[in-house]
Amino acid sequence: MTQHPLIRVKDLNVHIDGHHILKNINISIPDKSVTSIIGPSGCGKTTLLKTFNRLLDDTANVTVSGSVLVDDEDIYAPEAEVTHIRKKMGLLSQRPYPLPMSIYDNVAYGPRIHGTRDKSTLDSIVEKQLKDTGLWDEVKDRLHGPANRLSIGQQQRLCLARGLAVKPEIILGDESTSALDPVSTHTIEDLFVRLKAQYTIVLVTHILRQARRISDYIVFVYMGEIVEFGPTDEVLLHPKEELTRQYVKGFIS
């Protein structure tokens, strides 16, 4: 782990509608690696992910205390600018949600709103991101066709390309393969592994095998608390905590 990891969470507590959803979360996410957040459904793992890019702001009656430092900047500080924070992170949600526009415009959307107007610059960004996500050869002849005509696996890769086009430092994945077929799942997993050389990747997953396949570190969350955090092999094979052992063996789900 580096001296100053990109994402550091300190004493984070989240209440929604008076329920204590996240309790005293303290964690530093290792840079340039894949970290998976695992745990039974309803344990707060998605909420934890959404605190990183402040999408939690879109829910009513939420109180957040503590701090989340990204690049040494507290994103919950009153002066923090939320669009600037979100630009640093690409989000890949459970199902692909292409924007209602063409394939090209989906990828170009982010750079455009952030001020890139030059056509040739946009062209090269679109080409690069589509190549990075392995989509270029499949769609290069219909870049200006509507994005929702693509297969669901292609759409998910397009969403990844769209997120990468704003040059984030972090990729957040919220069960990003749960709606996909096995082949597309495999493609996305491969992409994550390849992308970790350049990005810090945080994934929420409920599939233990997936966590084992692609992650370097694992965070086990149970009832809103971090039970265990460590390198994948250690957590899955030699858990320190009894709860983790039970979860890994499938006794609690």
Binding site: D58, R86, L91, G110, V166
Partner: peptide, 11 residues
Amino acid sequence: ELKHAALSLGA
């Protein structure tokens, strides 16, 4: 999620 997709691109 569509709203969140746009927001998370920094829109």
